[in-house]
Design a protein around this nucleic acid. Structure first.
Lengths: 186, 186
DNA sequence: GTCTATAGGCAGATAGAC
DNA sequence: GTCTATCTGCCTATAGAC
């Protein structure tokens, strides 16, 4: 995080290897379904070594999800600061889609895990942030119809989790268009 | 299942209470995150009593998901039997949406649990069935664009999981329209 | 049909050597 | 910074009384 921001080091540190293994295993088996033993084995180390780098299993999850949650917070803050016009639902949808695509691996891990969904600093926080975005997209004092359409539009965005990153990248505009269409009418 | 098909008995049996509690807890905490102890306590009985009715924890999940999986199988079979025309994507989408709405509680339980996603008789089977439906919607030999649109259309359908049953019921046609629009172009 | 009691295992976490 | 060894507790599942 300090000076080698987005750069992947040539030699991954033990700490980074642990995080990478944890993300992969949490995605495959869920948080509860993954033991520290499995993470340690995947890295080729021991449970105690994991505990040297992280004070608890939970902190692996917090560390993995923080970048995405912080990006979501920034987006919501930005949305709120430019709250005068109510007609830029499309740009909000675009920003949300791009943020979703950028953090796809983390989201893939989260979307399928009730163990994280009820965690106050992860699932609860995420739902609050997504709700803020949904409200912004639906607009002020939305009708039921408008609420349903906003949910459909987010449903389109979330569907990228089922597609390959390649397909999402090359068809980003088509997906955004589908989301915008879902928000408008037929 | 036999003659009291959809009827809820006035006095729920212990077995039915166990299934109901399991569904609620699995939804809230996931399969791995729910212990038999918690299920037994919720019903007001003991772990051993649960084991009298079900041979293993896994069977609670199998029993809960079988109605939906069987309904999905029936839909896929029906789709395949009328395979000549490739232009009824809309009716397939409608059937899928209605099936999704009908089994919403079970789906709400499943969509958030990696423990079930990798179960061969549940998650794997479900993915196979959803894939069949997605292929049917995309049509024969689909382009990448068409594949992405089919995924977006299913994304709209799946978004009903985030809405109340009331809202979904009253706006079913609007949701279907949004799904159809996502499948077509903007 | 439902209970008590318990087996047997593995989880998360800690202490302290090196 | 990483190890071995171990603690404590809860888990699924079983055996057998009632």
């Amino acid at each position: 995080m300090s000076r080698t921001e987005q750069v992947v080091p040539l030699t991954a540190t033990t700490r980074e290897s642990i995080l990478a293994a944890a993300q992969r295993l949490f995605t495959e088996r869920g948080f509860d379904g993954t033991s520290l033993r499995q993470i340690a084995d995947a890295v080729g180390t021991t449970k105690a070594a994991v505990y040297y780098h992280f004070p608890a299993k939970e902190h692996l999850l917090l560390e993995l999800t923080r970048p995405w949650l912080d990006a979501m917070s920034a987006l919501v803050t930005e949305i709120r600061s430019s709250e005068r016009d109510g007609c830029d639902a499309e740009s909000t949808l675009a920003a949300y889609l791009d943020l979703f695509v950028e953090h796809l691996p983390v989201l893939h891990m989260l979307t399928g895990d009730p163990a994280t969904a009820n965690h106050p600093d992860i699932g609860r926080r995420a739902r609050t942030l997504v709700d803020s975005i949904q409200q912004r997209i639906a607009g002020p004092e939305p009708s039921d119809t408008r609420l349903v359409r906003a949910a459909c539009a987010l449903g389109v965005v979330h569907s990228v989790a089922t597609l390959s990153i390649d397909l999402v990248s090359t068809h980003r505009n088509a997906i955004l268009q589908a989301a915008v269409d879902a928000l408008s009418d037929g």
